[in-house]
Simulated assay, not measured.
Amino acid sequence: MKWTEVQIQTSNEALDAVSNILIEAGSQGVAIEDIHDFLNSPDDGFGEIWALDETDFSQEGVIIKGYFPNTLFLPELLPSIKHRINELEAFGLTIAPNIVKVDEVVEENWATAWKKYYHPLQVTRFLTVVPSWEEYELKHADERVIRLDPGLAFGTGTHPTTMLSLQALETYIRGNETILDVGTGSGVLSIASKALGAKHVHAYDLDDVAVKSAMDNIKLNDYAKDVTVEANDLLKGVTIKADIVVANILSEIIVPLIPEAYDVLKPGGLFLTSGIIEDKKELIISEQKKQGFIIIQVQQMKDWCSIVAQKPLVEDK
């Protein structure tokens, strides 16, 4: 079978949005080439993520590759894909260099070829993400393993936004919490929450592909089997009272989530947000303070930020 590869060279901050556009247009998967992953991924003895040469990576932005079966007539789809990418600028996302290339590829197990570059990675002090197809032995007694097969959904633990989220969860989970994971993607944050001792975890995503991916990954981790996953638009209609709300999503989506998170959090509850590009950090901090949140921690990795905010124990009258 023949496939068409659509390459989009764009900015880091548009990565998630462009990937989603390709998936919604019919791509059967996406591959991401980011020079920052090659240069900055930790080499800690737990296995390298990338087995590629630095020259294989673009020096500007990221390259997102979508794969379309030849049963789809791409000339009809490409104008729509380009139009939707251009529209991202209206949401404040930088899309430059915004270069689109199309190549034909012959199927040679392309759907699984990327697996040779994805190996076990210790992402925090206690959490190690392990591909579902690899054998792995614990390196220390307190290590918690998250088994993943990311498939089409975002979140393998290697991207800075996911690593920041995992670090925040490890820092603030004490045990027995109720946690809401908004925009769950691969389900990695929900699974990590259970690994760290959370009692009840509810995961939500608007994308049906992500919901299925999260469910599949949860089944790979017995300790997380009671995590619930539902399709939902942010926290609309959710009445569960939570100790922690975690969201690794775009800044533009975090903004409307802020009042919803505030409403469902218990007094003293924590709002952990990531997926925030550096130049949107002050906007998110400002909106959270306006809502009544207290900012207690801001972390940064490369161009990405995470924010930990707290709902006051006693609200101002």
Rank of each mutant, 00 (worst) to 15 (best):
M1S: 12
M1P: 14
Q9P: 04
S11P: 11
N12P: 09
E24F: 05
D37R: 02
L39Q: 10
L39M: 12
D56P: 01
E60P: 01
E60A: 09
I64N: 13
K65T: 08
K65G: 04
G66L: 03
P69K: 01
N70L: 09
T71I: 00
L72T: 13
P75F: 06
P79V: 13
R84V: 05
N86S: 15
L88G: 04
F91L: 14
G92I: 13
G92L: 14
L93V: 07
I95V: 11
I95R: 12
P97A: 09
V100Q: 09
K101T: 13
V102H: 01
V105T: 06
E107Y: 09
A113D: 11
Y117F: 14
Y117W: 10
P120E: 15
T128G: 07
P131C: 12
Y136V: 15
E137K: 14
G155E: 04
S165C: 10
A168M: 09
V188I: 15
L196H: 03
G197V: 01
D208I: 01
D208Y: 11
M215C: 09
D216R: 02
D226N: 06
I240S: 13
K241H: 09
A247E: 00
I254L: 15
A261F: 10
A261P: 07
Y262A: 14
V264K: 15
L272W: 03
G275I: 01
E282M: 12
I285Q: 08
I285W: 00
K289M: 09
K290S: 11
I295F: 00
A309V: 01
Q310N: 05
K311A: 06
